[in-house]
Design a protein around this nucleic acid. Structure first.
Lengths: 177, 177
DNA sequence: TTCCGCATGTAATGGGTTACATGATTAG
DNA sequence: CTAATCATGTAACCCATTACATGCGGAA
């Protein structure tokens, strides 16, 4: 349901083709709202049918460049000021609840993997932060705020995973699975 | 896809009917993996068909109590030691990217609402922590670890929202929408 | 006897993923 | 000429949500 708004949001920043949008989803939005090629083109057609975007240019290879319309802008704004989204499912946490079904060694492996991922995620974000050329516009400014969330999120996860490992019974020398 | 494992996980803890599972989803798992009544009953039928759970008792009003089978246990364990789940979509963050489409005042409202929710979420968890009677078994132990994640998560969100509000241009006195 | 809670099931719709399918341009 | 990239579109399947639909049992 939010895919359409993600697309409207990107098109509000600047006009783009389906292919362009796909690239932007792969880079800046991949961690936040992944979208497939299939989905993007299907949704573009729907949005054009309902008049929220319009083809404003055509290029080689059937390229169609879409621009957001006033109706689309209004729709986007309505979404942004609407009720808070309810938090999504969390598979990573769900697994935690059931770790009693595997051995403590295996459970520790899981927590260690989470710690590693958090560490790498943080490193990745730090790299990205330097790679991006931050401009002085809304999109960049709010992008930085989103990135700050990501950094804090990864840091929190790393610390939590370390804490959780300390809660576990240490060193299980039993053999076999 | 994870719903089946959530159900297997609960049934690994103890046998239950669809109705029982529904209650447990509503209480302990609602923040982590919400599930509807409809979904639970449909999935119970599938799991029974594939032999991962079995009806081990029947009660009044057509009540069927299900127990996890060895095959179900194996399936659950395989999920738990499998590849790390990829992080889910984050609508709350997605909105951040596009806040430039609304006024700074409206954007601040959004951030304030996030802060409030984090604060309340933290309070709710603290209350829950005291309400639950923590036993000395795996399910309780890992439940505590999951709860700790929740506390840290809400705290992080609250601090981040406060930080984000400080980044915003202060006090916009312009009129109009 | 009446209401609440227990208890189960199905159907329609929408969104997401994977796979299938095709073809034009451009750079080397 | 050939490979990589640009570029779009469709179909099948699965999962989740909402709504519909029914009925028993126990307590007041």
């Amino acid at each position: 349901m939010s895919l359409r708004y993600a697309m409207l949001g990107l098109l509000a920043d600047r006009p783009a083709s389906g292919y362009d949008l796909l690239q932007r989803f792969k880079t800046s939005l991949s961690n936040v709202w992944p979208a497939t090629q299939s989905q993007i083109y299907t949704e573009l057609t729907k949005l054009a049918d309902t008049g929220q975007i319009a083809v404003t240019d055509e290029g080689p290879r059937g390229r169609k460049e879409y621009t957001i319309t006033d109706e689309g802008q209004a729709e986007l704004r309505q979404w942004l000021v609407g009720a808070l989204p309810r938090p999504a499912r969390n598979e990573m946490l769900l697994r935690i609840f059931f770790l009693g079904a595997i051995t403590p060694d295996q459970a520790r492996e899981y927590l260690t993997a989470l710690e590693t991922r958090a560490e790498q995620g943080l490193a990745g974000l730090t790299g990205l932060k330097e790679a991006v050329d931050w401009e002085d516009n809304d999109f960049s400014n709010y992008g930085r705020i989103a990135m700050e969330w990501g950094e804090r999120y990864f840091a929190m996860n790393q610390e939590w995973a370390q804490w959780a490992l300390k809660q576990m019974p240490q060193r299980d020398n039993s053999l076999g699975r």
